[in-house]
């Protein structure tokens, strides 16, 4: 195990931080807080997403959760989940910066309640304001190349296209679109966010050259979230190694791998 890790550890930079893990993990939907904590540890993720919600007077549920996350000593990425306009997202980001003590924000502005598709217009508008206010914006977007271009134009250094709908577990709906974004923006950090359901989906995203994957439901809703966290750790690592190794070109015909010279029982018929 030690040898394996020594061989595969690489470092990368995102949001001004140097990391070794390319898996970004969510903190929601786990069977219990203890299970969440164990799964995050097992994943070896160095970025965990969190959120803000209304708190009633006298409650301290948020404090208990936040204490668990703080004790993990990893980077926190607050989100603006549930926001439907740039204004709501900007206010939520400002509140998150104060509470969580980070200028990182996972910018989510939802445009459709049925499929939770991000609103590209409001997302770009919010990103522009937040970047001017000193935020490191991690925008959740679709796999639309032009939207990615607009986000880059306003200064986003990270872009997070969806694989498929949030929580769907359907994997990568449009790998070709994801490849197009990768090719167009080699200098940006690209994370596939949302829709990952299986470790193989994460591997596929990494094989496309994405810098990381962000997921929550696939681990939290597994029958054994801790074991699944371990599976995703290796899946992300395998995909990255595959990408760095350079995959072979697919062919339209069969080609034997075993040498044909000296094939037994071969006869030259006249």
């Amino acid at each position: 195990m030690t040898k394996h890790l020594e061989q595969t550890t690489d470092t990368w930079e995102i949001g001004g931080k140097i990391l070794t893990s390319r898996l970004l993990i969510g903190s929601a939907l786990y069977p219990s807080p203890a299970n969440m904590e164990d799964a995050i540890k097992e994943s070896e993720a160095q970025i965990v997403t969190v959120a803000l919600r209304r708190q009633a007077a006298g409650e301290n549920a948020g404090g208990n959760f936040w204490n668990i996350i703080k004790a993990l000593n990893i980077h926190v990425l607050p989100n603006t989940a549930g926001c439907h306009s740039a204004k709501e997202a900007i206010t939520t980001a400002q509140m998150a910066r104060e509470v969580f003590g980070t200028n990182w924000i996972k910018l989510e502005v939802i445009g459709d309640q049925y499929n939770l598709q991000p609103d590209p217009f409001e997302t770009v508008k919010a990103a522009e304001v937040l970047i001017k206010e000193g935020f490191e914006v991690f925008p959740y977007t679709t796999d639309d190349l032009v939207v990615a271009k607009r986000l880059a134009d306003v200064g986003c250094k990270v872009i997070m296209p969806w694989g498929s709908m949030i929580g769907s577990g359907k994997g990568l709906m449009n790998p070709d679109n994801l490849v197009a974004i990768r090719k167009q923006f080699p200098e940006l950090k690209l994370i596939v966010d949302a829709g990952i359901g299986k470790p193989s989906h994460a591997t596929q995203a990494m094989e496309l050259g994405y810098d990381g994957v962000l997921l929550n439901s696939a681990i939290a809703l597994a029958q054994d979230p801790v074991k699944m966290a371990n599976a995703f750790k290796y899946a992300v690592e395998a995909g990255r190694l595959g990408y760095e190794s350079g995959t072979m070109q697919a062919r339209e015909f069969a080609s034997p791998s075993t040498p044909t010279i000296g094939t037994p029982f071969w006869h030259q018929f006249k």
């Binding site: 969510g26 969190v50 948020g62």
Partner: peptide, 10 residues
């Protein structure tokens, strides 16, 4: 007034 506190998020 909105008063918000940390919770789990994806």
């Amino acid at each position: 007034i909105e008063i918000l506190a940390p919770v789990q998020g994806g």
